[in-house]
């Protein structure tokens, strides 16, 4: 049925079986992956279903909650609203890629544990990615800056205070290290 000014899909495209798959090379956490996906698949679906990187979570699926946040070239994006085809050629970092090479946790991950910032945990992968991107750009933030920085991420347990504390602690420690 035609809606808005888009007259809808023509007959020949009815059904997903007619959709051409497209070959993609995705760079996820420094590894190249060759995948063949339908153009209507989101980055989130491809990460979880094709690459088994299930650290990234789907919650609302509409770009409202931030659970599915991953980094594209260092910037946070919502993987549920980003087609996999759109990010070819970019560097994608998921929560699995935060871990440092020797297997140690990222400072943020350790700080979240130390501060008890994780309740049910479903928002945490998104929180970590938003916080990591935020700290990379703002190494010397105020608490207000941090709250604004993670304002795109919803914690349904409402455990924001400890999350903010955990991020603040990392910011302070990185400063003192110089």
């Amino acid at each position: 049925m035609p809606r808005e000014f888009c007259a809808g899909r023509p007959e020949r495209l009815k059904g997903s079986d007619r959709m051409k798959k497209i070959p993609l090379m995705l760079n996820v956490n420094g590894e190249e992956h060759d995948v063949s996906v339908s153009p209507n698949r989101t980055l989130l679906e491809v990460l979880r279903e094709d690459l088994q990187r299930t650290g990234t979570k789907e919650s609302c699926g509409e770009g409202v909650c931030g659970s599915c946040t991953v980094l594209l070239n260092g910037f946070p994006i919502r993987s549920c609203l980003t087609l996999a085809a759109e990010v070819q050629g970019g560097e994608i970092t998921t929560v699995e890629g935060l871990r440092e090479e020797e297997g140690r946790l990222d400072l943020l991950q350790q700080s979240f544990i130390d501060h008890g910032a994780v309740q049910c945990g479903f928002c945490i992968p998104g929180m970590l990615m938003s916080a990591r991107a935020f700290l990379n750009r703002n190494p010397n933030p105020s608490e207000d800056d941090i709250r604004k920085g993670i304002s795109g991420n919803v914690c349904r347990c409402t455990g924001y205070s400890k999350i903010v504390d955990a991020i603040m602690d990392v910011a302070k420690r990185s400063q003192s290290r110089g």
């Binding site: 809606r3 808005e4 888009c6 899909r9 495209l13 770009g63 609203l81 980003t82 087609l83 759109e86």
Partner: peptide
């Protein structure tokens, strides 16, 4: 029959909700 995809933060949501189904 075509929709323009820029950032997609509005269009993709509307496509998921089947408010618009561009070919």
């Amino acid at each position: 029959q075509a929709a323009v995809l820029a950032g997609g933060t509005d269009l993709i949501v509307r496509m998921k909700q089947r408010l618009v189904e561009p070919a």
